[in-house]
Computed example of a mutant assay.
Amino acid sequence: MRFSRVLRAGAVAAAATLALAACGGGGDDSGSGDGGGDGGGVSFDNLVIGIKFDQPGVGQKTPDGYAGFDVDVAKYVAKELGVDESKIEFIEAKSPDREQLIKRGDVDFIVASYSISDKRKEEVTFAGPYFVAHQDLLLSADNTSIASEEDLKSSALKLCSVTGSTSAQNVRDDFAPQAQLQEYSSYSQCLTGVESGQLDALTTDDTILAGYAAQPANQGKFKLAGLNLSDEFYGIGLEKGNTELQSAINDAIKKMIDDGSWAKFVESNLGPAGYETPEAPEITETS
């Protein structure tokens, strides 16, 4: 049976502890990472973390590296787990791939605008939440046809979201079941359709939409509808049943909120789009 990365890390730590005991060594409990955090007993030499590569303000791969709110959260959590930023490998976690990345052990955890849901909790464990977003729509700046939830009931409406996302499911099941929904592999594809007029709106979390609208190339082209269609509780996804890592990540999230880092990350990444820093959520995912 194949061990996940987390189980392998725990096995290495346990073996090292036994070896020290056999030799009569004292040792310390600082962990094997380089970042200085104690990790709540969870030890890593390095981390592979799944993030989004195409969400400005949230998770984006740039020529200079990786940027966004989720990236800052991931780096903070890694530091608290004892892993320096230089020992993090970021890989792309597209919405339909997230559960499989975790189940195959390709990542240690995922920080990728990953909404906690009962269905997903059947396959993975979550820590957090660390943020609450709200589903909204991004329209072309001159679009006046969508101003309320009532406007979403038209069968002629052409909406777009990403395959495997909670937002797409909400369109089908709840607020716009009659709409013509297009699902693409990336939000960038949806945005192109809205800009060209082939689609009426891109729908997903307001954090993601604000990030796109704030990009220099997009300023003045798009606007948010301002509809809070749902509450999306972002969690950090990890291996099903790994309560030790869950607890360590929850401790890191609490510290990040308490020491002011969380609010700083929100402001620096989403503030330029006029996004007001909300209240930090309460930790609910404790198994």
Rank of each mutant, 00 (worst) to 15 (best):
36 G>T: 08
271 G>M: 07
176 A>Y: 06
16 A>M: 09
232 E>W: 02
169 Q>R: 13
14 A>V: 05
163 T>M: 09
8 R>T: 14
129 P>G: 05
3 F>N: 12
1 M>Y: 06
250 N>I: 02
286 T>I: 13
267 E>L: 01
210 A>C: 06
231 D>R: 14
243 T>R: 14
181 L>T: 07
62 T>P: 04
70 D>V: 03
65 G>F: 05
66 Y>R: 04
163 T>S: 12
93 A>G: 11
224 L>N: 03
51 I>Y: 05
101 L>Y: 08
125 T>F: 03
79 K>E: 11
245 L>M: 14
259 D>Q: 01
217 A>L: 04
29 D>M: 13
97 D>N: 15
48 V>N: 07
277 T>D: 01
117 S>Q: 12
164 G>A: 07
18 L>R: 12
273 A>I: 09
241 G>V: 09
189 Q>P: 00
259 D>F: 01
226 G>W: 07
30 S>W: 11
100 Q>K: 15
169 Q>T: 15
139 L>A: 13
141 A>P: 00
22 A>C: 03
19 A>H: 08
112 A>R: 04
65 G>K: 02
84 D>Y: 01
80 E>M: 10
255 K>G: 01
245 L>E: 09
228 N>D: 15
98 R>F: 02
109 F>G: 05
262 W>I: 02
74 A>E: 03
104 R>N: 14
132 V>M: 02
281 P>G: 08
172 R>Q: 13
163 T>R: 12
57 G>S: 02
252 A>R: 02
272 P>G: 10
226 G>C: 00
91 I>G: 11
67 A>N: 06
106 D>G: 00
272 P>E: 07
219 Q>P: 01
160 C>F: 13
121 K>C: 05
4 S>C: 06
185 S>E: 10
99 E>P: 00
211 G>F: 10
136 D>Y: 10
157 L>G: 08
271 G>Q: 07
226 G>H: 02
223 K>Q: 14
11 A>F: 08
32 S>K: 07
50 G>P: 00
103 K>G: 01
53 F>R: 15
143 N>T: 10
164 G>C: 07
28 D>I: 01
34 D>K: 10
72 D>C: 02
190 C>Q: 13
239 E>Q: 14
276 E>D: 14
186 S>P: 00
182 Q>A: 12
257 I>T: 08
168 A>G: 15
260 G>N: 11
93 A>R: 08
43 S>D: 14
74 A>S: 08
175 F>C: 06
125 T>C: 02
19 A>I: 09
1 M>N: 09
107 V>H: 13
169 Q>L: 09
185 S>I: 05
128 G>Y: 10
262 W>A: 02
138 L>A: 10
97 D>Q: 11
38 D>L: 03
69 F>T: 05
187 Y>T: 07
249 I>F: 05
173 D>C: 00
233 F>E: 14
271 G>Y: 05
274 G>W: 13
152 L>G: 06
113 S>G: 12
4 S>Q: 03
159 L>N: 09
70 D>A: 03
45 D>E: 15
16 A>H: 13
151 D>C: 06
187 Y>V: 00
159 L>S: 11
168 A>P: 10
286 T>W: 01
241 G>Y: 08
47 L>D: 09
